[in-house]
């Protein structure tokens, strides 16, 4: 089983990102489970969400404490909190313009992408949750680009889906380690 933890702020769509990941993984016949942890329900507050992926049905229902992957939607959050419990061979996928070494997050492999810039170009707003799924897919191979885009198209009306799909694809292509 692979466990992914998303870190963002209220309003950035960390919950939707985990849900879309679960849906994308579901297309391939694998099993998945997304689940949010709401703290105070307001914009700007730190939010976590989780996604599990497995070859067999997932029967546990609990938070993710030792993730295989963390996805950072907002790099201004506390790096120690975000990195907590990350496995020794864990991967971090971070939305930032900074080089990996300057993010403050320690992980065996760090991938970075300027998802905010990509979202601003494509959506006109800094909504990076869908875009970051493209980066996650490329960095980890846990989910294919086509399945992410399929889930995005199922979720959003066509105009918005087209823009999001472009952002996903650009993040997929631009993410670097």
């Amino acid at each position: 089983m692979k466990e992914i933890r998303f870190h963002g702020r209220g309003g950035q769509g960390a919950v939707t990102a985990a849900e879309l990941l679960a849906v994308s993984v579901g297309y391939s016949g694998k099993f998945s489970q997304a689940f949010p942890f709401f703290g105070v329900e307001r914009r700007g507050a730190p939010v976590m969400s989780f996604c599990r992926i497995d070859e067999k049905p997932i029967r546990i229902h609990q938070q993710v404490y030792e993730p295989d992957v963390i996805v950072v939607l907002d790099s201004t959050l506390d790096p120690n909190m975000m990195g907590k419990g990350l496995k020794a061979d864990g991967i971090a996928v971070i939305n930032t313009k900074l080089p990996a070494a300057q993010t403050g997050i320690s992980a065996s492999k760090i991938y970075t992408v300027d998802a905010t810039g990509i979202a601003l170009r494509n959506l006109g707003r800094p909504i990076i949750n869908t875009a970051m799924l493209g980066a996650l897919g490329k960095a980890t191979g846990l989910v294919g680009l086509e399945d992410i885009i399929k889930a995005v198209r199922e979720r959003f009306p066509q105009m918005l889906a087209d823009k999001n799909a472009r952002a996903v694809e650009e993040c997929y292509n631009e993410v670097k380690s």
């Binding site: 985990a18 849900e19 679960a22 849906v23 579901g26 099993f31 998945s32 489970q33 997304a34 689940f35 949010p36 709401f38 049905p57 997932i58 229902h61």
Partner: peptide, 12 residues
């Protein structure tokens, strides 16, 4: 049903 653990879980 358990709130959040089930109501908000996306699964198959």
């Amino acid at each position: 049903v358990d709130g959040f653990y089930l109501t908000h879980a996306v699964e198959q």
